[in-house]
Amino acid sequence: MKFLARKIKGNSLWSDALRRLLNDRFATWSFVVITVYVVMAILVFFNLVGSSWQESMGPSREAPDLSQGPLHWMGLDIFGRSVVLKTIQGTYTAMYVGLVSSLIAIPIGVLFGAVAGYFGGWVDDLITWFSTMLANIPEFLLLIAIAIAMGKGTTTVCIALGVTSWVGLARLIRAEFMKHKNREYVVAAQALGGGHMRRIMKHIFPNVLHIVIISFSLRFVTGIKSEVILTYLGLGAEIGQRSSWGLMIADASGELMQGVWWGLAAATAAMFPIVLAFSLFADALRDAIDPKLRH
């Protein structure tokens, strides 16, 4: 990707960061992996791939067989469904959970954090009080409480993750806004006659945007991993609705002792690269945007 890095012309901190990312082997490979999974999820969404995942292909729990074509490569499940197709379908669920929980957590976190940090005073007290209350409920128990209140399903998982995870982001953003609002460049904008909106949106926000991007990447990591656990606990997708890696791994808890390992292996093999890619990408982003923090 170095040839691409050389093509970036700008000299802003962003193009600097992008150049550094493109020169970073881990970052580029992570990006490639993420792109592959996103494309896969989109194909599943438009029913272009794996739409026949619920069809029975053969005997129940047939072991992996390379001779019967790609759909049998990872064996069949209890209903004779192709594990390969289920795994592909699961990609969509994983990306959906990551995306939707981010879309809930990030706007709330950024808005509350920015308002609390920038304005301070009673607005800050109120938001801090509210987020402290949420943060005081152990996350896992809150997830359960929300899941009980809303009923089971993938959407519940997304909402529960979104609602529990904005607090951390809001705290980060609040601290950054408090730091930046007294920086001289922001005071200068005030002295030049710039109003609150200009100072918040044009001056401070671009300087904290990297936190939002990093947090977006890390939300996917948490989202994908939490979906598995919540599904195992019986709070996530229910059998028959859609396929998910969580369901496949949860099923394995009963099947493994009977020697049925392929469902677990397929889901783990699918999950590992994407979670790793999002983690590495977040790390690389942090390094690229703020080289000072590099250790």
Partner: peptide
Amino acid sequence: FQDPYASLNPR
């Protein structure tokens, strides 16, 4: 201001 590094928006 005093600090020429802090008084310009880096972005």
